[in-house]
Design a protein around this nucleic acid. Structure first.
Lengths: 245, 245
DNA sequence: AGCCGTCTGTGCGCCAGCGCACGAACGGGC
DNA sequence: GCCCGTTCGTGCGCTGGCGCACAGACGGCT
């Protein structure tokens, strides 16, 4: 059952949430962690569907997104190695009306929901950690709502790029403009235009689904306030981040 | 200390969250509840501010809203007698970067955060209830984000009216178009136009900050899917609602 | 080398919502 | 009953993003 040390040297502490557990909580959870490949596009949860696992990304990134009846979609939040996917499984609702899709391929760990839930209910510290993460996630969601309403596409793109970058080992992300458009809930052409601006300014460089961030500093200068608000809350609630400015 | 029976016959069970507590939890909490007037515009929480109380509205309604640096604002979610205001106080973060403002005057109860938190940590059932409520709130927030992005102002107005209606004893709400505009994060003129449409269709009737809903059924027919999604989640997670179609 | 599917750039017309600037209508206070 | 502040209606021009349509450009595959 202990499969925590297989594959390419993956280790549970690569997920910062797991890493900040107390020794007791950590030891209790580790035997139930399974390493898992998270390929691009994998739907970790479906809207309203019952899934039995909770996921801890290490070098992968998962988007929570909502798909409308007419097919239009919007990303609600994004989770990488700083968090956990599937909060509804310990919040008591079992499911949510949104999807969770792997946006950046990599690895992660998963635990059976029942096991995590049991530990959630018994161990105070694990619970507090998960709840604080949930609150951070809420901040990200609300800020997304506000940003959707008030800010222009190119600023939203900046925000999104920085969110991804914070959760990525390198400064390169594999993502077509079409996909980004789905995330931001805008037209693909809108992304082309916004990305064109950023490229012209020398902030990024991309071709055919491969984006490299050249100047993170200036990206942070160009982004709307929303990014900093979210970042600050994550740092405050979960401790200082790594891939940082 | 027992101030639960003062004023105009207010009773804790008028808040549905309190009403659905087990007898033990309820009895433990009641001595610490204080009746409280919730006048229009009262800022129950300020962004980032430390407030010592958690609030349970009875016939009042509180908006969670986010104010941008330039003064523009957007409502994130709305809470009435079905819930509680101040989740960050038991989620572990103590505060959030958003405001909470009374949108519809009335009464409510408040408890010192420390007391609620203690019971949250000891009593399993109270905790589960609050967490399920939190998840419902998250659904409302995400749906707001999506609706902001994809739906027209008049549909959003329908959604908003229905949300308020569900939390109000009557079919009348006191709210200027200016205020509604702040909530929806749009121009006042946009609300004038949208409200004009609804009035022309005979769905509502309003004058000088007083809106009466004449035909709730048709309002539900006109609203976007977002309302039903949220409603369904609230019903699923918190039990069947009252002010219902 | 050549092909073909994917990805990106661009150019329309269109419309919703914005920002601004008034004017009208209502209603409470003296 | 009058006045004045609040609330609501309306008419601009402007812009950002949408929907559509098509052309170039890159890259993997045979």
């Amino acid at each position: 059952m202990v499969k925590a040390h297989s594959g390419s040297g993956a280790h549970p502490t690569q997920n910062r949430l797991l890493a900040s557990l107390s020794d007791a909580d950590y030891q209790a959870l580790v035997p139930h962690l399974e390493v898992m490949a998270m390929p691009l596009g994998l739907a970790v949860y479906e809207s309203g569907g019952l899934q039995g696992y909770v996921y801890f990304p290490t070098d992968s990134i998962v988007s929570l997104l909502y798909v409308l009846e007419n097919g239009a979609s919007t990303e609600i939040a994004v989770t990488g190695n700083e968090g956990v996917v599937g909060i509804s499984l310990f919040m008591g609702g079992e499911t949510t009306p949104s999807r969770a899709v792997v946006q950046s391929a990599g690895q992660g760990y998963r635990v059976r929901a029942a096991i995590l839930k049991k530990q959630f209910e018994s161990r105070g510290e694990l619970q507090q950690l998960l709840l604080r993460f949930t609150q951070a996630l809420i901040t990200q969601m609300t800020q997304t709502a506000v940003c959707n309403r008030h800010h222009a596409v190119d600023q939203q793109l900046c925000r999104w790029l920085l969110l991804m970058l914070d959760r990525l080992p390198s400064n390169q992300l594999n993502m077509t403009q079409e996909l980004i458009a789905n995330m931001l809930g805008v037209r693909r052409e809108g992304v082309t235009e916004a990305a064109g601006k950023l490229q012209a300014e020398g902030l990024i460089e991309y071709s055919r689904g491969r984006i490299r961030v050249l100047d993170r500093r200036r990206l942070e200068f160009r982004v709307c306030e929303c990014y900093a608000v979210v970042k600050r809350e994550y740092d405050r609630l979960l401790g200082r981040a790594t891939g940082d400015s």
